[in-house]
Design a protein around this nucleic acid. Structure first.
Lengths: 413, 413
DNA sequence: CTAAATATTACAAGAGTTGAAAAAACTACC
DNA sequence: GGTAGTTTTTTCAACTCTTGTAATATTTAG
């Protein structure tokens, strides 16, 4: 907010306020919105009329409010009015999901991409094709407004939100993925963002918790492990990307500065203790990994954990200690209210917790009220897709005036 | 910004914008302010008139701008109009400084406090007495407006900004220092804040760099060591306090999770490697420390470093490695554009850098553009006092309408 | 001394919110 | 069944703020 402000900005802000309230607290009357936002009845009426004009909000019947008096006319989000497309790039596939502001899924796809190492162009073509398909689905719906396309993938993304600084798994460096994809889509009429997968997963988990628990902490950290170790920081409800898009890369927190060498160039990184390869190796599954791949080894590790194999449980307990060290680092630096575990850290939380607690016990004993709560993420493997959709949702809720009015400006029939 | 916005908020924002511009870029004309802020000439005139009415800004002569034409009338901050009082609590003394928005010092004091362990009340009395003295100095000045009193001390301060959660050095816990001090000052007519000393020092160093370098990074981390190891995070120009006021406590980042026990309850904390006791001990000065205290040992260490004593330089090189590990953790988590060293880390940066670089070399080799620059702080031991003043300054610049107009509202003679 | 150039102010218009009054719509009660 | 009471929503005049244009002020070049 370094720019000059005028009354239009006030309008934007207050429209967003009303829309956010209606989106968050289900169908509700104008009076309730006024009470919740602090705006005056007259203002809420005008702002709601604006939102209705954009097709974002509609009146949905009346509800007599207990005693006598005029019944309140409830407002709610119009399903399917604003849709976003999210794409997640994993090692082998592209996952696609399109959903509206309420989270109703309009389109879902999963395709293999067979991207060659070192050349982002074929993957960009696949992404563009899938965006086109999803866009066609959205366009077929009457009055659906495509707000944004969001591509999530591993690797730091620079602040401006389009260049992947280093995608180790794909052998790229400083690749403007947005430009590559947009080159295939000259007619795309909405913004396209590239984001870090773990960062948006953190955002999704943050909102999932905020929606069920009442209070939302000022900061939340997310640590996940699946094919890699990553994470994200949500500060004040927003993703903290950092100067180079590296923020939240918890996989490379050094938990032992004289530890084993990490491919990143440093020593003793967290990923060297809880990453899939070191973890399965520590559980004595190196041979399984060599034969069946990492996924097979992880599945076998899961079986052995549930069977009570001591070598497996010991490996998890040791890994837990490194997670505990990372949590202490996070606690001291960022001081989040909660640390959320994702991926197999959530699945195997029961076996990790003893190690985490052991490392944190000392400090907790001194000041238990100052340490973050460690909780399991509630979203499964789709956390990233949901998070990518969430970034679009937040952008729309922040500035609803980007959604066109339904009267004349869209004469497309 | 979750509250409804009205035109008054627009005014606040734009007044702040103009004031900030005048404060930052010296005496400048309305035209220049308009160009820099994006506001229209007419608006700048009105806003400047408001600021002049509050006595914050004054016209200071004309300056012909090159060629012909009406000369521009320059605006500048009125010295001494808005004054803040900062107090820093150290182990043995209370340091006091009062200064105006431009940083001109109006009052300076340093008194021993002899605070007993476990009882905050005597210290609160000393603080209240010193605030009263500083206030009297401010009040004696014609038209000086006391904006804020800020108390900086070690220990996490909760977000609401008044309770010290744990002051280890003084043996307090969850102490509402603000209430204790205000009880002695029933007539204090301005807000009183309690802040973490290292956090505000980080803010001061951030602004010191921002003022000389043009671009300010989106995030900056600060690490200092003197009587203790601490730090701060500045994100988006603001101090990130965290959920419990613990953010930036870099002294307790674990750099080796099987390292030596730390009084905080954890193991391998950074403070166990670069803190004054471990550092002097590693340099073979344990006996000096026992005889002359920590300060004596640090002075001796400084002499030996400059004399080239290999044991001293080796100790610093080793400590540097732990700092490097902490920087890697900070880089991965927060991804600041710069890491600023303070205290004796700045003084002895030349001996620490080899160790830091050794730890960071590996990752820098892979992606040099993604690692933060490590720089020495420019402010000396007064960084904390300047930072405390800076928090007040930022609050005033954010909302200049808190400064009363000079006409009638202040009939005090 | 005049014309050009630059800086600042004056003024009407447009957009937004606010507060009070009016209208709408339903329930309860006689 | 009609009327009063209650609650919700809309209408309308007033106020504030920014903007764009025009007018005014002030200096230098020629």
């Amino acid at each position: 907010m370094n720019n000059p402000t005028d009354t239009a900005a006030v309008r934007r802000h207050n429209v967003a306020l009303v829309l956010r309230e209606i989106a968050a607290h289900g169908p509700c009357a104008r009076t309730e919105v006024a009470a919740a936002t602090g705006l005056v009845h007259a203002s809420v009426s005008a702002l709601a009329a604006d939102l209705i004009g954009r097709g974002l909000v509609a009146e949905v019947g009346s509800a007599s409010s207990g005693g006598r008096g005029r019944p309140r006319r409830l407002l709610r989000l119009v399903p399917g009015r604003v849709v976003a497309i999210a794409l997640q790039v994993t090692l082998e596939r592209v996952e696609v999901m399109a959903a509206d502001l309420a989270g109703a899924v309009a389109h879902r796809a999963s395709v293999p991409h067979r991207a060659p190492f070192g050349d982002p162009e074929p993957l960009a073509a696949v992404l563009a094709r899938e965006i086109g398909r999803a866009e066609a689905v959205v366009r077929a719906r009457r009055d659906a407004h495509l707000a944004r396309v969001v591509i999530a993938m591993a690797g730091p993304v620079t602040g401006s939100g389009h260049t992947v600084a280093a995608a180790i798994d794909f052998g790229w460096s400083r690749t403007d993925l947005r430009a590559l994809v947009l080159a295939h889509l000259p007619d795309l009429a909405c913004p396209l963002d590239v984001v870090n997968d773990a960062n948006v997963a953190a955002l999704a988990e943050f909102h999932a918790r905020a929606e069920q628990g009442g209070e939302l902490p000022c900061a939340v950290a997310y640590i996940k492990a699946d094919t890699g170790v990553g994470g994200g920081l949500v500060v004040g409800g927003r993703i903290h990307t950092g100067t180079h898009g590296m923020a939240g890369e918890v996989g490379h927190i050094p938990v032992a500065f004289d530890g084993p060498d990490c491919p990143c160039g440093a020593r003793g990184c967290l990923a060297m203790y809880v990453g899939p390869e070191p973890l399965t190796a520590a559980a004595g599954l190196a041979d399984v990994a060599a034969r069946d791949g990492v996924d097979g080894a992880l599945a076998e590790l899961d079986r052995r954990l549930r069977a009570g194999d001591p070598r497996a449980t010991d490996a998890l307990a040791f890994a837990g200690r490194s997670v505990g060290a990372a949590v202490l680092a996070i606690s001291g630096l960022v001081d989040p209210g909660e640390v959320i575990l994702g991926g197999y850290l959530a699945t195997w939380a029961a076996w990790l917790t003893p190690g985490i607690d052991a490392v944190m016990a000392g400090r907790r004993a001194g000041a238990p009220h100052l340490e973050p709560a460690i909780v399991r993420g509630m979203l499964g493997p789709d956390a990233t897709l949901h998070g990518a959709l969430r970034t679009s949702r937040e952008a729309t809720l922040d500035d609803a005036t980007t959604v066109p009015t339904l009267d004349k400006p869209t004469p497309a029939g």
